[in-house]
Design a protein around this nucleic acid. Structure first.
Lengths: 132, 132
DNA sequence: GTAATTTTGGTATTTAAATGCTCAAATATA
DNA sequence: TATATTTGAGCATTTAAATACCAAAATTAC
């Protein structure tokens, strides 16, 4: 059962997490995010760490600590967050990333590139404020 | 650099290979398919083996052996071949394959399912005879 | 009939990626 | 100031999947 359009658990945690955080004024900690997304706190911790480093979250250690959004919800979109976790989505001509097609003409007719572009554009349109 | 729409080397070999075979009346052997697709003969051998077992190819051992198409080119489409290699493409509601969304409402709005369905339908429309 | 060729099947290796763990560092609260 | 809480960083583990290899079986051609 192949996944055509893939969303890793990490990307899922990042997107769900940032929405949950944006919804709370006082911020949210790892444990709560893990509970509400039904994932492990270890994994949540790792993912949040990366969002902090990338400048999307502020973190606060110690009792009553946690994460708060560092930007305006309308200024953060799904693509930003997705790419922090998965890397930048690149639109390549060849689905196999070959420089020259040994086959002659590509049998995929750029369908994979078009789909990828569509998905990218969709993610870019989804700003966090639409999910608060 | 994540791949949104993924095509494994195995799937690529299968699709390219079956077209190459369909184009030759006398069949084609592993070495030639590997050359023309710029892949390893080991990998080609494994992939072809699966297409034989699945009934899409006949194989012939020994000198001047190789593979020939077992069906009419118009009766074989890309989806058939893709699924032999990758498994059946299933259209699930949840991109994370969760039964109940712990989050409440899915943040992906079925976009991943829709894209997957589109891709599946596209593959199904591409019959081998269109590529001879 | 012998040797060369080619597929077959099983196994091994590699790789990547995801996920999990542990202890150290920071900080709020009492 | 002590303690409990929480994030941070690096490393360990797991898993899955893809790819590669090798020896055996089949078959043709000479």
């Amino acid at each position: 059962m192949p996944k055509i359009v893939s969303l890793s658990e990490a990307a899922s945690i990042a997107l769900h997490g940032i929405i949950l955080i944006a919804r709370e004024k006082k911020g949210l900690n790892v444990v709560k995010i893990a509970e509400r997304t039904d994932t492990s706190k270890h994994h949540v911790a790792k993912v949040m760490q990366r969002l902090v480093k990338a400048g999307y979250l502020n973190s606060q250690r110690g009792p009553s600590g946690g994460f708060v959004l560092r930007k305006e919800p309308k200024d953060v979109n799904f693509l930003d967050i997705y790419e922090v976790i998965e890397g930048v989505i690149e639109i390549g001509e060849c689905p196999m990333d070959k420089q020259i097609c040994p086959f002659g003409k590509c049998i995929m007719n750029n369908v994979t590139s078009k789909m990828t572009l569509n998905f990218k554009e969709y993610l870019e349109k989804q700003t966090i404020d639409q999910y608060i």
